[in-house]
Write a protein that binds this DNA or RNA. Sequence first.
DNA 1: GCTTGAATTGAACACTTGTTCAATTAACGT
DNA 2: ACGTTAATTGAACAAGTGTTCAATTCAAGC
Lengths: 209, 209
Amino acid sequence: MARTTGSDGTRTKTAIRAAATRLFARYGYEALSMRRLAEEIDLGAAALYRYFPTKQAILFDLLKTHMDQLLAAWDAKRPPDRIPARERLNAFAEFHIRHHWDRNDSLFLSYMELRSLTPDNFAQIEDLRRAYENEVVTIISDGIEEGSLRPQNARVTARAVIALMNGLPAWYREDGPISPPEIEKLYQQMVSGAAGPVIPKEIPCSTPA
Amino acid sequence: MARTTGSDGTRTKTAIRAAATRLFARYGYEALSMRRLAEEIDLGAAALYRYFPTKQAILFDLLKTHMDQLLAAWDAKRPPDRIPARERLNAFAEFHIRHHWDRNDSLFLSYMELRSLTPDNFAQIEDLRRAYENEVVTIISDGIEEGSLRPQNARVTARAVIALMNGLPAWYREDGPISPPEIEKLYQQMVSGAAGPVIPKEIPCSTPA
DNA sequence: GCTTGAATTGAACACTTGTTCAATTAACGT
DNA sequence: ACGTTAATTGAACAAGTGTTCAATTCAAGC
């Protein structure tokens, strides 16, 4: 019963996912027709329905997969709680930028096409987004507790920080003048700054250079 | 020839604009049909074409008007160049938040529906967006020059700052627990922080409190 | 009341939409 | 070579798209 062939249909499904990610991001979910999507991978429109039951299911699959991968990846790289909050926040910024570096379109979709989701599907994705947001809230809250960060509202700051970073794919072009490591550092500093000024534990008497 | 009546058609046009702003923001440009839009203001779909030649023209009108108003309003409130850059940045943040406070949907549209614009229309709107962005770039660049701000890249920082603030309408609800003045202050501080730490002109030997 | 011109409409047009399905092709195990 | 099942297709469907236009309603001036 189980097919042992290499082409078990997963390849095609992956191709659909890739094309859909690119084209949804470029033209938008509503503006892209199933025929145009199928054409992109040299298939008839009807063939798509062997892999996904509806157009909506494709979008949901993309967003769900993206969020699952995002949360799993963060779970694997998350710094331990004992690390100072500011360092954890830096680690988060680095992770977020790096993880999305070759996932520009997915990131773009994951907040641009939320309103194209069915209420049920939207609720599911929103839960995952909330979970991700909570990771930042926790870091910032810990920072407030330990006195190293001083934003006035952890959740608002978390959202602002994420919005700040999510703005990147809207303008960044690979052939631009700024290299990935530079972007990484830039955004790290801005995120850190947005979360509040560095607060020294002791007030040192600095000797001028 | 000139009608002297109060209802010279401007009223209806305004109603169309208002409904389009709300519904485009809620459902997206592609997802909203002319029939549904017309229905919202108790008109037949055909009547819309007396006020706008195409659906695309409505969207463009909305975005163009928004950007024109935004730039004009900033021009009126822009602090003079002699003011320190950090204060000017604070003034900008305050302006941006306040100006969009009752223009949530327009702000949302102005970056969500860019890709629904015709290439020609897009180019026009992009020019205005660039002009607005340049205002922030100038402030930050001045800050770097005068030594009070120290971000590593003025344009990237400007974009990040705008993205940070534009994230607000995506989650803020009027019936939420945070008041407008609080939001204003929160975002001001985050923007200021993202643009770099406060750099004292002289390095003082601080006497602990 | 009549005329004039603007405002609005319903029906129509040509086309596209997501989706289904019977029929066909392709690829595999034996 | 055969049979089986997966993969793909073209045609069709009902509904909806933006847009046009002749016909109609509406409001105002005389």
